[in-house]
Design a binder for these strands. Structure first.
Lengths: 187, 187
DNA sequence: ACCTGAACACCGTTCAAGT
DNA sequence: ACCTGAACACCGTTCAAGT
């Protein structure tokens, strides 16, 4: 087996995928500011110019990461929508917050002004798809329509952001999951 | 009048203040990523190394900007708290969102992970002061205590962030102020 | 077709030297 | 005490050249 499939790494394989995987790890470990193209190339064992064969720019790489984030997020939301949960609003909110806490830097990147500056149709489509499923779930549950749906969304999103930023201090012996559920169920 | 007070600019005056003012303008115009120390020095007409006499690093400069943001924000909140508005919760929420929309990049900086990474006691103190007044107002109005206060805060903060990111699409002829009020008043 | 090596124009930051 | 000039070690990005 001179050219086995098992050990034919990115040197002459799919560098793009390897870059994305390494970038995701660096992003979650170091944050967006710590994710340099040269660092990334080094981590993957490739020259500084090599990533440009697969991504037009650092921003394009970040966009690709954010898009995969939205796709995973959408998948989670759709799972809630298609399950026959008694209270889909609550279930959605809890998963929304859980996703943010499980992938803090990816979540931040998805909403980062770094990407929203210029036109990024791929990103906007991915974001739109995610919010479609969101609207679908909230629309099912809420009779009062748009304003109530936006209020619920704002509360869940704000909760996720504030928790991520460490702005909501925990009291002694308080369970974060319980607090999240209590805040989401607040009427 | 050889050395009039009027035209004795930063060349031999208070460079620190001039830097902060120029930085605030650049921040709001270009965003945090567009605020370089060298650009700033150029804008103020001073050498690239000059700002280091007043700020230890770029991060320290950003922190100073965020602190002034929190101070202005706190001032607005205290004005609401000390006024005898009938519905302080609603008034607070509207001013919270208005502040974010009026100073989008400053508001983003105040909550940016760039600053929250390392220990920045000055920032944390300024943020704490702001949230003390917030808690004070919400505490007055809400009988149900902590969870309700956090839910209200999360909703207002989330609303501000989503509006800032352009995630909440306006319907035809819709007034943004009216929508904000409607969402905040949603019970 | 995909990657390397070397270069370009920038950064933030430091430090001796000027006034 | 406050600022300048020049330098250092980095970036992101480009481009000719290699395989």
């Amino acid at each position: 087996m001179s050219t086995s499939i098992a050990n034919a790494p990115y040197h002459h394989g799919n560098l793009r995928q390897a870059l994305l995987e390494a970038a995701l790890m660096i992003l979650e470990k170091e944050g967006e500011a710590g994710l340099g193209l040269r660092d990334l190339a080094r981590a993957v064992g490739v020259s500084p110019a090599a990533p440009y064969r697969h991504f037009d720019s650092r921003a394009a790489l970040l966009e690709a990461l954010a898009v995969t984030g939205y796709q995973r997020f959408t998948g989670l939301m759709q799972a809630v929508a298609s399950s026959d949960t008694l209270d889909p609003m609550t279930a959605m909110g809890r998963i929304y917050v859980k996703f943010a806490l499980d992938n803090p830097n990816l979540f931040r990147l998805m909403f980062s002004p770094v990407l929203r500056r210029d036109n990024r149709p791929g990103l906007q489509m991915a974001a739109h798809a995610a919010y479609q499923t969101l609207r679908h779930v909230t629309g099912q549950d809420l009779a009062s329509g748009r304003v109530a749906a936006l209020a619920a969304w704002a509360r869940v999103h704000g909760l996720a952001v504030l928790l991520l930023d460490g702005q909501i201090a925990m009291e002694a012996g308080e369970d974060i999951e319980a607090l999240v559920t209590a805040i989401i169920d607040q009427r």
